[in-house]
């Protein structure tokens, strides 16, 4: 078993273990930390797949941005929401059955399909992604920038309207 395989198993265990810990943790602050572990595991998987630029973006945006945003949201919603309430038994059973069924179907699809292989992975990712963004995908790139601008302005306006409504 090579080093790559061992790294793959460790990173997959981090990713999936973080997800399981989110599922079972009662305190929300801890589950944010488990989400951090899971996202770091995904970033490691990206590095293993040769997508180093995407791994750096994952750490910057997810770990540095979204997790901090979640902590902010948690802090703004008050101490009564810091713990998950007891779930009822019926809901637990139904959601468990649903997601296990989805997992079985997905795993069967992964197992049974003949996946195409034989491509050559690109060696230089950052430059290639930049070139693709500004040539082939330039329209999507502009749409994404407009989306971010709209979200920024929209969230600010949203909170301001809410505050003026309350007072």
């Amino acid at each position: 078993m090579g080093v790559e395989k061992i790294a793959f198993y460790i990173l997959s265990a981090l990713t999936l273990g973080g997800g399981v810990a989110i599922l079972f943790s009662v305190r929300l602050m801890r589950s944010v930390v488990y989400l951090l572990v899971s996202l770091f595991g995904v970033a490691g998987l990206f590095i293993l797949m040769g997508a180093d630029f995407l791994a750096a973006l994952q750490v910057l945006i997810y770990v540095g941005g979204i997790t901090v945003l979640l902590v902010f949201g948690l802090m703004l919603t008050g101490p009564s929401q810091f713990q998950n309430q007891e779930e009822n038994r019926l809901k637990a059973i139904t959601s468990g059955v649903c997601s296990v069924a989805i997992a079985i179907v997905l795993l069967l699809i992964v197992r049974k399909t003949q996946w195409p292989t034989g491509g050559v992975a690109a060696s230089e990712t950052a430059g290639g992604i930049g070139r693709l963004l500004l040539t082939q995908n330039v329209f999507a790139f502009e749409i994404a920038s407009v989306l971010l601008l709209v979200v920024l302005v929209g969230v600010a306006l949203f909170m301001r309207l809410a505050r003026s409504n309350r007072s």
Binding site: T15, L23, L28, T77, Q85, S95, C98, A103, I109
Partner: peptide, 21 residues
């Protein structure tokens, strides 16, 4: 791994009541 992670996320969405979860 991706399929397992997806169904784990789906389980969290269906199971938890808290919006942040």
């Amino acid at each position: 791994v991706a399929a397992l992670l997806f169904s784990l996320g789906l389980l969290i969405v269906l199971f938890r009541n808290n919006a942040i979860s």
